[in-house]
Amino acid sequence: MTADTTKNKAEIQTEILAAVMHDRVAQVYGPGTGIEGLVRLSGGASRETWSFDALLPDGERKPLILKRDPLDEQTDTQLIEGEVQLGVDRWTEGRLMQLAGEVGVPVPEVPFFLDADERTSAGFVMQRLEGEALGRRILREDAYAKARPKLAFQCGEAAARFHNIPTDRLPALPRLPVAEALDYNRNVVDSFHQPHAGFEYAFHWLRERLELAGDRVGLVHGDYRNGNLLVDGDGLAGVLDWELGHLGNPLNDLGWICIRAWRYGYYDKPVGGFGEVDDLLDGYEAGGGGRVSREALHFWEVFGCMRWGVICMTLAFTHISGKERSVEKVSIGRRAVEGEYDLLQLVD
């Protein structure tokens, strides 16, 4: 009975969305354009992603993806909670992808947006590119054997390009310079009322070395890692998931892509489980980001380990507080020690 009701609701939602997309593709690509194969993709619980093709009157087929907010008004689980809310809206996310594409970052094209109205929540539509985004498969499968050795350099190059987008060209974004980012994470840990000496040491260590972070401010992707990279046989095909984009120190992205959590067991390859730090930094320089010192990267790796630990705790406390009971979320809490262990190996 319940299953039937759910199924009907899903079917109705799909029909409504099909009508919305039909209208929009006709506006964008001209009358007579239709859609085909609209299907919801699995993945993020806080966002809906849908796959479909636009069929133009001349027979051209455009493979597309819609990413939109959830229809029910459920508040999204913030990765980091605090005074500053990270997490941009779908229009901003799509706009960041367009801007990144304009400066030569491989990203899916974003041809149009959806406004929230009585039929749909807000969203944006992007090109459906061929490739693999699952971190483990990228590291394991033969199809990506030739791509893997190139990825660290390509990731450095791509990051340098979007980090250099002039800030006056960016849409309004949350601003989180390093000192605030540090406070922000410490406040999150404090909110759990669970004294944590290991992370306390990280906060203290980072606080005393803020000058290593550098004072650059630019577009930070915010979740730049293996898992948010679309990879094909030739290498990096697209940088995905820009929803944690913010203004901050761009090197944050380089530290984040190096933490062990994104190596999926391939621990001897520091960059995303596929590459070497020298290649990442060479690529960054080649992309116009300048020469990043090992000391600066080290600071941001420690920061990244700390942040991973805090995210794990945050997810666990989403369960513990009763906000969302989930065996998966509460279990991730025990992964906080991975960040703690790694950062304690990195610090002096």
Binding site: Y266, V337, E338, Y341, L344
Partner: peptide
Amino acid sequence: ALLAHLRQTSEDKIALANPRYLTKRG
């Protein structure tokens, strides 16, 4: 002394949470 303590504590915790983390390769 502090770091030695913190490292030992984190190593113990990881031995409970995910012992393979200390050894896993590939």
